[in-house]
Design a protein around this nucleic acid. Structure first.
Lengths: 197, 197
DNA sequence: TTGACTACCTATCACCGATAGGTACACTGG
DNA sequence: CCAGTGTACCTATCGGTGATAGGTAGTCAA
């Protein structure tokens, strides 16, 4: 033990896991999320396919690590943002940042917000990260006077609908996302109107 | 030729194709859309997997036939509906029928409106059917005074967002879809306000 | 020096979509 | 009635995929 940093092997292992996940994203960007293959991933890493099972107990576990990774990065981005004081402007800025981040990487968007792999369901731990992201959005909405669960559901579904239409039909464009600010106003006005009659 | 109905073989073949597609939907409902396998489908049909290639040149061609089938049924449903005279009520009734139909069959909903099989893209002919469906919706919207492409896009994305959230997070429930009528009003009011200032 | 541990490896499995080539049967024209 | 043609299947096999079993060279602390 002496002379060796405690947990050096664990650190090295964690670094290798992170390297594999990063390479997996790279491969997904090249081949599409459906074209991600353990054989192909191993080839790109310079190892053999069964060796990956030392780091992930299944392909879905790899997806899960990628899912968690994407949500962590999104969380970082949302938390790093300086928001305007005006709650409504904060909601707009926050959602704009969300949409920008999400649309910047098609396979990541698909893995995080669509269900492109029918057998993949995120683990409880990874799903908790997604709920953290949702929690940030809800906090912004709450500050803008949107507290009703139904209003929150509708708002989230609207943003998801825009993102989904954008990535599916016009990736890289703004045909849907350009309406984001206007729709945020529409939803906030409507929610405020009904909560304070 | 005499004595045999013209195109009897073609008819029998078409009937067999329809039977295979129906069995494929059945299997998809049992095993999930991702669990649909040519081997499994053939087994359920009492034939061998390569025999399916007499009817579909690839698995994606089978998906394509299912995609077309689902859209045709949806189109029938929409066209069979008697709509209220009031354009706004017509939009609501139409969208309610749309959402009901779509949510009644999870795998069908996934194949038609999500992208659960990364390698599958509908053919031009099948996609035209999906555009017919969209055309019906647009006609209803137009009658209600929504003509701007941006407004149509937002409306469609909103409905898709509701459906997606509902099927993904609360299949069989109404947590999202129960807001449909209210959101239709919200969108129509907004569109009308901006088109006739 | 030794013994455990790490980070790989080879070999192999079942299953999947896809292709090649063969066969029993029905129907039709002569 | 018979020969020929097309239908609707079949068997055998391929390459690729995720997954498992079991082996091995190198590292490192005692």
């Amino acid at each position: 033990m002496i002379g060796t940093p405690a947990g050096a092997v664990a650190e090295r292992r964690a670094a290798r896991v992170a390297e594999i996940v990063a390479t997996a994203w790279e491969l997904a960007r090249d081949e599409g999320i459906g074209g991600l293959t353990l054989h192909g991933l191993a080839r790109r890493l310079g190892i053999r396919q069964p060796s990956l099972y030392a780091y992930f107990e299944s392909k879905n576990a790899l997806y899960d690590a990628m899912f968690a990774d994407g949500n962590r990065k999104l969380l970082e981005r949302l938390d790093a943002q300086r928001l305007p004081n005006d709650p409504r402007r904060a909601v707009k800025a926050s959602m704009q940042a969300f949409v920008d981040f999400v649309l910047a990487d098609t396979p990541r968007c698909q893995l995080l917000f669509q269900r492109p792999i029918p057998t993949f369901e995120p683990s409880a731990e990874s799903y908790a990260l997604a709920e953290d992201v949702l929690g940030r959005v809800i906090a912004r909405l709450d500050a803008a006077g949107v507290e009703d669960q139904g209003d929150i559901d509708c708002f989230v579904a609207m943003v998801a609908g825009l993102v989904d239409a954008q990535i599916s039909n016009d990736p890289g464009g703004t045909r849907w996302t350009r309406h984001l600010d206007r729709l945020v106003d529409l939803y906030l006005d409507d929610a405020n109107r009904r909560s304070t009659p």
